[in-house]
């Protein structure tokens, strides 16, 4: 049975997967961590931990990369089920 058929058979609302929600909360923590730094400890964002690039840019790019990595992990793990 295809996934779409499975969904259409449900009379209520098809829930998002538990795996998806777990990965969602992982990302939310990363996002909140970034916002916390911006709001509470902006001085730390001026540190330059990565080849002279400051933490503001490293963390920002890291959030973009993390979204992609988690998305690929989700796709692979869901396909394997």
């Amino acid at each position: 049975m295809s996934e779409s058929q499975q969904h259409h058979q449900s009379p209520g609302s098809p829930p998002a997967s538990g795996l998806g929600l777990a990965l969602f909360w992982v990302y939310v923590l990363l996002y909140i961590g970034f916002m916390g730094l911006v709001l509470v400890r902006p001085d730390l964002l001026s540190l330059r931990p990565f080849f002279g690039v400051n933490l503001a840019i490293v963390y920002g790019m890291g959030l973009i990369a993390a979204a992609f990595v988690l998305a690929v992990a989700y796709m692979v793990l869901r396909s394997g089920r």
């Binding site: 969904h7 449900s10 609302s13 998806g20 990302y27 840019i57 920002g60 959030l63």
Partner: peptide
């Protein structure tokens, strides 16, 4: 300006992990 980039992309995490499959089915 890059904060907008970060926020715009982060929104896709909500779309993928929470919304995409149910909305397709509904």
């Amino acid at each position: 300006g890059f904060l907008y980039s970060i926020g715009f992309l982060a929104g896709w995490v909500v779309a993928l992990f929470v919304i995409a499959e149910p909305i397709k089915a509904l």
